[in-house]
């Protein structure tokens, strides 16, 4: 397994994440409606708004999974925030970075992952909107565009929260 890398701008990234004042806050319908839409749109079992904190990924919204966080080093989202495009793993069992990942070999038995990085206006990638399934899948360019668009809506909601008094 390849542990999730630490971005070179990690310190600033964490500052930007914490300035959102969203970590460890209760679920909110405005985020939950996005994950429900994403799970339905792609016909997957799980959709998450995942925020990558220093040592964990914490889920602001989750559809189809009970856990509210996992360790960062085993997270797929920790890899997804390394780039600016949608990060796709069509079959985690066939990818040496993830084939022996405990999230693949054990519950929730991830086979497919696609995550759109949540990029704040300042360029910091604080997390992802991601979809997950227990079966391998393909994910077309149009699928990626749809997920990226939903990711932009998620960022708008995060920013709206940060700007509210």
């Amino acid at each position: 397994m390849t542990p999730a890398p630490i971005p070179i701008d990690e310190e600033q990234r964490l500052l930007a994440l914490r300035a959102l004042l969203v970590l460890d806050t209760p679920p909110e319908e405005r985020f939950d409606c996005i994950t429900r839409f994403a799970a339905s749109e792609f016909g997957v079992s799980v959709a998450l708004v995942s925020l990558v904190d220093e040592n964990r990924q914490w889920f602001k919204s989750r559809t189809g999974i009970d856990a509210c966080e996992t360790a960062r080093d085993i997270s797929f989202c920790g890899h997804a925030i390394e780039g600016s495009g949608v990060f796709v793993i069509e079959d985690a069992r066939l990818d040496t970075r993830f084939s022996d990942n405990p999230l693949v070999t054990g519950d929730p038995f991830i086979r497919f992952y696609a995550g759109a990085p949540l990029i704040l206006p300042g360029g910091m990638r604080v997390g992802t909107l991601c979809v997950i399934d227990t079966e391998p899948r393909t994910f077309s360019r149009i699928d990626q565009a749809i997920l990226a668009s939903l990711g932009e809506v998620t960022v708008e909601e995060l920013m709206r929260q940060a700007c509210e008094p």
Binding site: F37, A145, L150, V153
Partner: peptide, 14 residues
Amino acid sequence: TLRRRTVVQVAREL
């Protein structure tokens, strides 16, 4: 709203 906005953005992007 969410579907409409997604369609608008993806149609423009493509």
